[in-house]
Design a protein around this nucleic acid. Sequence first.
DNA 1: GCCCAGTAGGGTAATTTGGGGG
DNA 2: GATGTCCAAATTACCCTACTGG
Lengths: 70, 70
Amino acid sequence: MNVHHAETETLLTPSEVASLFRVDPKTVTRWAKAGKLSSIRTLGGHRRYLESEVRDLLGGVPQQQRPEDS
Amino acid sequence: MNVHHAETETLLTPSEVASLFRVDPKTVTRWAKAGKLSSIRTLGGHRRYLESEVRDLLGGVPQQQRPEDS
DNA sequence: GCCCAGTAGGGTAATTTGGGGG
DNA sequence: GATGTCCAAATTACCCTACTGG
């Protein structure tokens, strides 16, 4: 059981997530709006993202597509 | 296990890789599909490429060092 | 309260994707 | 076999102004 408490979860800012994916911060916002990425809201309305989820979505290890995969 | 920190890896866009190789961006996509080049996907399906791998594939051509990397 | 980099929001260009044919 | 081009649709980047975070 590795259930971490939310308060111990590291949060990332939009620009930090954007840098990891090499996209614009606005694009990360669209992902959150589209439900592709979960987000926490500050009391002022700014979004924060779960580092663990972002790392998971990054895939960690890039993959090479196989030529004969159809 | 040798899990590299892909999240610290600098990523390149398709057009950037295409410019470095002096080919059409579509050609870079074909390289990725053929498994000749590893790639990461954004949540929207766009590909991002590892700068280190691209540099390596460029064949030992000395690259211009950037003055500031922060 | 002021400062200012970052973010939200909305709108418009630019890029990328995938397929097909040369 | 590999590459460049055309097409339509989807995704992303850049523009602005106003507000939040520290």
